[in-house]
Design a protein around this nucleic acid. Structure first.
Lengths: 112, 112
DNA sequence: CGGCATCCTACGAGATACTG
DNA sequence: CAGTATCTCGTAGGATGCCG
């Protein structure tokens, strides 16, 4: 990729530049179910490392897709919530899921 | 990622496992405009290397998203065309583009 | 609990060169 | 024209450990 500093003109490319890695979209999927705490997100995403989760979450914050709210309590509690912009991703995720059901099973990895 | 051998249950995850890298989706975008030859695809995707293009195209073939047709002519001509399954991705790409227009400009990279 | 710092790996991708 | 082969690189992501 050319690593364009500004957002690309093409809408698809713009989407891609904001939801880079494979985990990014999955995190949004979890957040679409409502606000989540850090550990709740980690539980809902088997295999993700806290490093990756933090990294994606911070990027989403910068892009205005999620809002991070820290409650100064003991024990500390932090809540991640989608912004209206982030909520708009629901249509995209729905489209992905709708398409996925049309994919025949077992044709990935060796068809053998 | 856990690198599950089978397609994930979650539709979103299934989509993600088939359209891995950032170029993958962009290639589909080009193909949605109709059948393309190798060089046409390369021209429409500034910055992509033949290696990457071939790699993604081959994967799409394996997953039944595109059909590769080689015409035994001189000079050789190869055409890549979306299968009905691949055509179904149009809704997803449309959703991405529709969402992207709601993203405010200039908030990516340093807000400064 | 909710991170952050550091180190390391895996893989998509770029560059270059060569072939049917 | 349409690739293939090799090598290197960038970056998402994993592992581990520590801190407020």
């Amino acid at each position: 990729m050319t690593a364009d500093p500004c957002l690309p003109e093409c809408g698809v490319a713009r989407f891609l530049s904001l939801l880079e890695g494979p985990w990014a979209t999955l995190i949004v999927r979890e957040l679409l179910r409502g606000p989540h705490r850090f550990t709740e997100l980690r539980d809902g995403l088997p295999g993700i490392s806290p490093h990756t989760l933090t990294s994606r979450l911070r990027q989403f914050e910068r892009h205005g897709i999620v809002i991070r709210t820290a409650y100064p309590e003991i024990p500390p509690r932090v809540e991640y919530r989608l912004t209206p912009l982030g909520e708009g991703l629901r249509d995209v995720l729905d489209a992905m899921a709708a398409w996925a059901v049309t994919v025949p099973d077992g044709e990935s990895t060796v068809t053998a």
